[in-house]
Amino acid sequence: MKLDLTLTVDGHHHSLTVDTRTTVLDALREHLDITSPKKGCDHGQCGACTVLLDGRRTLSCLSLAVAHDGAEITTADGLAPDGELHPLQQAFVDHDAYQCGYCTPGQICSAVGMLDEAAHGAPSVVTDDLTGDVRLDRAEIAERLSGNLCRCGAYAHIVDAVEQVAR
């Protein structure tokens, strides 16, 4: 079964016809040739496909496209309109917070979403006082980004980069 839908991706409107089985990730990669979100596991276990969907960090591999008709999606590429890097992206370059780069767009979308969550006072499981203010120390950043696996082992530099921007 195929259905028509529209998606706004990185500010561009797209109308497309997709199989009901098509995930947002496959719609982006295979239909729209937008390959910034990566397919690492396709089962919500690695975070490489993370995009901002209607402003929140979301796993595009577990989202069916037909269930997101009209959604606004921002990929890591969309964080750098006209090629000017987002401060977090620049921090990743400066701190060498990656190696192979495959998990990187997902890490960056996740970190952008995470910073927004923290700014709204959302606690994490390592927050000592659940009802107090959120202070993003290294342990907080690491926990909140643990849904993004990096097999090259760039975690220490990723925390450096995010910490710099969180300040």
Binding site: G113, T131, G147
Partner: peptide, 25 residues
């Protein structure tokens, strides 16, 4: 905030589950 203050076990359990992205979904 009500859950965090009145049912901390529940807030902790939710935050201990999955990942930030999955909890958004």
């Amino acid at each position: 905030e009500r859950v965090r203050a009145r049912y901390p076990a529940l807030a902790h359990a939710l935050l201990a589950g999955a990942s930030g992205q999955l909890r958004n979904m």
